[in-house]
Each structure stands twice: as structure tokens, then as C-alpha cells.
Simulated assay, not measured.
Amino acid sequence: MEQLQSVPMQVKKSKEQQFVQFIIERCKQDKGFAARLRRADNPATEYQSWEVLGPWVDLENKYQRLPYAAVAAAIGRAKVIANGNLSLGKALANAYAEKGSTQYSDQAKARLRRLLACDSVEEVCRVIRPVLTLIDSKGVQTLDYSKLLSELRYFGEKSKIRWAQDFYGQRAQGEQGEDA
């Protein structure tokens, strides 16, 4: 009887993971590319990123385009070298964390509440821009941009709950790796 050879299975990357990997790699190689992306989440200059976003999304559909633009702009600004593993809620909590304290500042809570009050993809993509800039400026660990992109693409109650639970540290460790 023939023995079956075990062939290592390749895990297929999601569209979000492929996009984030593409953007990170291109930003590392091309500073002009990164500069165009930094303008992607500004409505007045967003068109400069359409060449990059076009192959990934329907540019006419703002509910597809805006999450990709927001994440691409954040990557371009943050100058990341690899996708991270930190959720948005945890990154926001870490950005305001004081050494030795488990309390979160009123400012951190206010930013979280503002994100949770958003009712549409369009609104959350507009509100998240300064939050992502703040997180990057505080030097906390790198965000999981592919997870964030997925949460923005399918923005709704589940995304809000996940951000709140991650912020307050109530999600179990096993749930941290779940996809949106």
C-alpha cells in the first residue's frame, strides 16, 4: 500500500491581509507611494490614492473605498515594517495607559465612545483618522491593520463590541485571534 505524503497546507490570506501586506511592502520601497497614501483619508486629496486602491475596490462605492483608504493612509503615516497584532481597542488603551495603572484616562474613554457612537462606515472612517495618528504617535505596538480593515469593511455592532471589549480587557485570550 502506498503511503501518502504529507503536503504542507498553505493558509490562504484574506483580501485584507493581502492588501495590507502589499501596502506595507510598497511603502518600504517607495517613499512617493507612501506620500500618496498619506493623503488617502482626506476627502480633498483622496483621489491621489485611487491608482493604488483601484485594483482592490470599486472606487465608486464609498463604503468599499473608505475603509481601504483609511487603513492605507494609516500605514503610510506610521511607516510600519510589518503588520502587527494589536487590536484597535487594545492599542487605544495602551496609548493612554499609565505605568502601573489599570485605569484608563477620561480622554481615552472619550475617544473610544466617539468611535462607538459612529453609525456608518463613512463616519467611522472619518473619526478614526486622528485616533490612528494618536496611536502611532504614542509608540505602542503595531496595530493589526488587516483586522482593522476587516472591522471597518463590515462595520457594525460586532466591530463596536470588539473594540470596547479589547479596550477594557474583557475579551478572553482565545477570542483575540478571531477574524472579524
Rank of each mutant, 00 (worst) to 15 (best):
Tyr168Lys: 06
Leu152Lys: 03
Asp179Thr: 13
Ala164Phe: 03
Phe155Ala: 03
Asn94Trp: 00
Tyr104Ala: 12
Glu151Pro: 01
Gly156Thr: 13
Ala117Phe: 03
Leu134Phe: 05
Gly169Asn: 08
Glu151Met: 05
Arg162Gly: 06
Leu149Glu: 02
Tyr168Arg: 07
Arg171Asp: 10
Tyr96His: 14
Asn94Thr: 03
Gln170Tyr: 06
Ser159Met: 05
Leu116Trp: 04
Ala93Gly: 08
Asp179Pro: 06
Leu143Arg: 05
Asp136Ala: 13
Gly100Lys: 04
Tyr96Ala: 04
Ala91Trp: 01
Glu157Phe: 15
Gln107Ser: 10
Ala82Lys: 14
Ile128Tyr: 01
Leu116Val: 02
Ala164Leu: 05
Ala110Met: 07
Arg113Val: 00
Lys99Trp: 08
Gly174Ala: 15
Tyr104Met: 13
Ile161Ala: 15
Lys160Asn: 12
Ala117His: 05
Gly177Leu: 12
Lys158Ile: 15
Glu178His: 14
Arg126Phe: 12
Lys158Thr: 15
Gln103Asn: 08
Ser105Gln: 09
Leu148Gln: 06
Ala172Thr: 14
Asn94Ile: 00
Ser146His: 07
Phe167Asp: 11
Gly156Tyr: 11
Arg171Phe: 08
Asp179Leu: 11
Ala82His: 12
Cys125Val: 04
Ala97Val: 02
Gly89Val: 09
Gly100Met: 03
Arg113Asp: 12
Lys109Ser: 09
Thr102Pro: 00
Val127Ile: 15
Arg113Leu: 05
Gly139Phe: 11
Gln103Ser: 07
Tyr168Ser: 08
Gln103Gly: 00
Leu148Tyr: 08
Ser146Asn: 06
Ala108Met: 08
Arg129Ile: 10
Lys79Ile: 00
Thr142Asp: 13
Glu175Phe: 14
Ala108Trp: 08
Asp119Lys: 11
Glu178Trp: 15
Val127Asp: 06
Lys160Pro: 11
Leu92Asp: 12
Thr102Trp: 13
Asp106Gly: 10
Pro130Val: 07
Gln103Leu: 10
Arg153Ala: 06
Ala93Cys: 04
Glu98Phe: 10
Leu115Asp: 03
Arg153Asp: 06
Gln103Trp: 00
Leu86Ser: 07
Ala108His: 05
Ile128Arg: 02
Ser87His: 14
Leu143Thr: 09
Glu175Thr: 13
Gly177Gln: 10
Val131Ile: 10
Gln107Leu: 13
Tyr96Cys: 01
Gln107Phe: 02
Gly169Ser: 10
Leu115Gln: 03
Leu112Cys: 09
Ser105Asp: 10
Lys99Asp: 09
Asp119Met: 02
Asp144Ser: 04
Glu122Ser: 14
Gln173Ser: 15
Ser101Phe: 04
Lys79Asn: 13
Gly139His: 10
Tyr96Pro: 03
Gly139Thr: 06
Lys147Pro: 01
Lys160Ala: 08
Leu86Thr: 14
Leu152Ala: 00
Ser146Phe: 06
Ser137Phe: 00
Tyr145Ala: 03
